[in-house]
Structures are given as C-alpha cells and as structure tokens.
Amino acid sequence: MKHLLSIDDVSKDEALAILNLATEMREVNTREVRKLPALNGKVVANLFFEDSTRTRISFEIAAKRLSADVVNFTAKGSSVSKGESLKDTVLTLEAMGVDAFVVRHHHSGAPQKIAASNWSKATIINGGDGTHEHPTQALLDALTMRVRLKGASDSGDLAGVRVLIVGDILHSRVARSNALLLRKLGAIVAFAGPSTLLPRTATTLVDEVYFNLDEALENSFDVVMMLRVQSERMNSSFVPNSVEYTALFGLTDERFENLGGKALIMHPGPMNRGLEIASKVADSDSSAISEQVSNGVAVRMAVLYRLLAQESK
C-alpha cells in the first residue's frame, strides 16, 4: 500500500495488520522514552486546508515519536490565501523534499487528486477530505472498540459486534469510513438520524437504517457512536432547531440510563455537549471518547510506519 486515501484501499488483512501494529505502538506510548527511530530522516508534511485540532496534533505527535521531521502547513496565512492552487502548493512542498503528505481538505477527493496526479511522488495519507472519508479515524475507532470489547491484547476482528452511528450521516466523513471499515472487520453497522441527514441510498453503505433513535436503541447495540451536528444544519432546513434535534436524536441522560451501561459510547469530536450528547454521558465510564484520542496517536504511528518504513516490502 503506497497511499491511504480511502478504506476501500485497505484489505481486511491490511486493516488487522495496522491495528495489531497500533497495539504495539500503544505499548511504546506507555514507556518512559516514547520514541522509535523508524522514520529518522523522513519528512512528513501536514497539509491542512481546513481547521483541525486533534487530527493535526495527533499526526504530528505520531510522526515525531517515529523520529520523522514534521512540517505543518495550514492554508490560513499561506500563499493559498493569495490564490495559490492545490497543484502549485503541492509542487512547492514536493520540491523541498517531502516523503509523506497528510492531507486535510474541505473538498471531497482532494487527497485522491494529489495521489492520482504527477505533482508528487510522496505517500499521501487522507486526514479527512470534505464529506468523503477520514480513514485514520475509522482505524482508531476500530482499535478503541477492540480494546474495550475484547481486551488490549486481542488481535482479531470485530465479527458480530453491533455498531450504531447516530446523527448527520450525509455530511460525515467519519460515518463513511467507519461503515466501510467496521463491516470489513465483520461488524454489523447501522445508521440513525433525521431523514434529511440520512439519505435513502444509505442502505447501500450499512446493514440497518433507523429514522427513530429510540427504536434503534432497542436493538441491542454494543457501540453507540454519536456524530457532531453542526449549527449550520439548523439554518438550512435539515432540522428545525437544536432543541428538537436533542429531543429526537441526542444521547440524553434518559436514553443513556435506558441503555443500562451495556453500550460503549463513542464520539469522534469535537463534541457539542448538551446537543448531540449529554455531558454526563460523555464523561461516564461507558464513554471511550478520551481513549479514542489516545488510540489515534498509536494508529497514526502504525499507518506512518507501514507506509513509510515498510513501503518497500
């Protein structure tokens, strides 16, 4: 595998190899000296055309723990604001010698475009493109599920695990990548959300679709993943208002009580506490939200390692 653009590019074996390598990286991250020399001399460029906290910092820490040199490019304050194209931005950085680009872009398909072009010979890692995919998020979510449901040393798949993803499916790159990866690993995946944000064609992506969250929650899910709902959705007639959204699709204290602690609660962040997820739920023992973030570093170390240190294999 040269690039990581979409979960479509990742076979089940490859996904398990990344997860198992990430399990080793988790162990590295507990050591006193949390550093490996694997990518010594390599340059990883974080090419971020869209705001990000956790993904950018997570990739940066991951690359540094593997001893790579990291440069951070953000569109704000760069020549992009002078109208420089994606092509010229990539050509410029390529000319300075970059081994891998981690690309976060507001346009779906931007990392695919860079990989398919002759602008760069570097490895391209999709750090989230538009409303398309966010493959490393799906990998860290799968790792988090495996650790919590099967134990930290498990090396198997997620066969039979039932996962419900709730919210703005239409605009969620996290939902797409998770649906592809989790099903590849044997999980049963369902979407729930208002029908304006959950198109009829979503049945092509998952096993079950629910337009009523309470009905969905009756179907014994092992994992409930809440998605961020953006305030702009309220302003463009996707849903009437945030109060109604919370009442119908929020993981409220009451709904959480009804789950009886049987489901793992996840959220890719950033959260709107009190909107799609109640604060107490996010901070409960059932919540794996902080572990998702720390597993993110391990998974990105594993991805960088496989693509940059093992690529010649």
């Binding site: 194209s85 994606l86 092509k87 346009h107 779906s108 398909g109 931007a110 538009g130």
Partner: peptide
Amino acid sequence: AESKDCEWGE
C-alpha cells in the same frame, strides 16, 4: 487544463 487539473470541487 488548469480548470480541470485540480480538486473536483474547484
């Protein structure tokens, strides 16, 4: 060419 050799969205 430059109008096509770019991101889909652009």
